[in-house]
Design a protein around this nucleic acid. Structure first.
Lengths: 202, 202
DNA sequence: CTACGATTAGAGTATATACTCTAATCGGGA
DNA sequence: TCCCGATTAGAGTATATACTCTAATCGTAG
């Protein structure tokens, strides 16, 4: 692993553990086993490290989205699966979601990048809904309702881990599953296959 | 206004403007027109100021909740009204919601306080749903679904301003209204008197 | 090998920031 | 009036932290 990547990996780890505030560039260089000077040879400043992490997150995220899109048939089960996949992916970058609002507020460049990705994601979710409707898996909905449904899904996906943390709940397999359940219940009324039939396997 | 309150007011203003990270205790004392020594006579440290702000928020919040509870008949309209009221109240303490996860993660005492309030609020929302069902305004739902509905409502209420900010949208009357709309659409399927007859099968 | 650009070390620095200390002042009761 | 505790001023300090500087070393093309 080259020095640049070592810095990024260490930063992700420390940020996840202690938050961007508490972690200094000197901590990162020490953690990566390099000198502060070396760190600053690769990054102009701390903000740039965070931006680089976001860019990596973005690249992985797009891959993830593509994978989800490919295997998604539009059934409620695949939507749930996608949620779980996204949460697992987010776990690696959990500090970012945790501090999301502060981070994007503190760095206009980062905000711009995030907003772009955010909008693209919303389009993806929306198109997934459209597809499900076309395939007769979801009830036909007017344009406006589709958009709102997409936003509801994305809001829950984006903030569920934060919700857990501020609720005093541990973020683990089980509690993430609850987020997935919540999503299912939000979607349930729109699923063509009668939603009231709650005798799933289990 | 006494010195202590002056400090709190100034801190709220500056935190809202620039975030807790960028605002120093010296900024606060300067902004309040007092000396740093004086500030530290009233508060042991910065964390204590934030805790004091939360306590104030909590007191106001409880009043607000009581008022909402009194006038709420359980119709979808009053639920929307409550959302808007809560958002307006939150606006005064917007830094707190913005940095919510970081703040509670950084201060265990604050976290404990917040979690308590959070749980109480969830109970309130839940009882509001129960009441609506009893009055025949919402469809009867099994226990589990009620709880999830309460959580969905509270999650959206809690994170809607954050969602707007990270979406690159301005937080204003109109965008807050969209949050209220979202909430209505989440609830719509459970409302007994169908709000709008849509062209949907069933 | 040599030259040389890329990389790295690590001591060093300017500044910021949370917080302290002591003396002064205020305000109200005796 | 004087006293005395509560309050306030504000210079001062220890520490942290982001970042710099220069010299050393590495890797590789010629």
């Amino acid at each position: 692993m080259n020095t640049r990547d070592k810095i990024i990996e260490t930063a992700i780890r420390l940020f996840n553990e202690r938050g961007t505030r508490a972690v200094t560039t000197n901590h990162i260089s020490a953690g990566a086993g390099i000198s502060p000077g070396n760190l600053y040879y690769h990054f102009r400043n701390k903000e740039e490290i965070i931006r680089a992490i976001f860019r990596q997150m973005d690249v992985y995220g797009r891959e993830e989205h593509r994978r989800i899109h490919e295997r998604t048939t539009g059934t409620i089960e695949t939507i749930e699966e996608s949620f779980v996949m996204i949460q697992k992916f987010n776990w690696r970058f959990r500090f970012f979601k945790r501090e999301l609002t502060s981070l994007v507020n503190a760095d206009p460049a980062l905000k711009e990048d995030f907003v772009r990705t955010h909008r693209e994601t919303l389009v993806l979710v929306r198109s997934s809904i459209d597809r499900s409707i076309e395939h007769g898996l979801l009830l036909s909905l007017p344009e406006e309702d589709r958009q709102f449904l997409a936003e509801a899904i994305w809001l829950v996906t984006l903030f569920w881990p934060n919700y857990l943390e501020v609720s005093g709940e541990e973020v683990n397999e089980a509690s993430l599953q609850r987020g997935s359940d919540l999503l299912r219940r939000i979607l349930a009324p729109y699923v063509v296959q009668r939603p009231k039939r709650r005798s799933r396997p289990g």
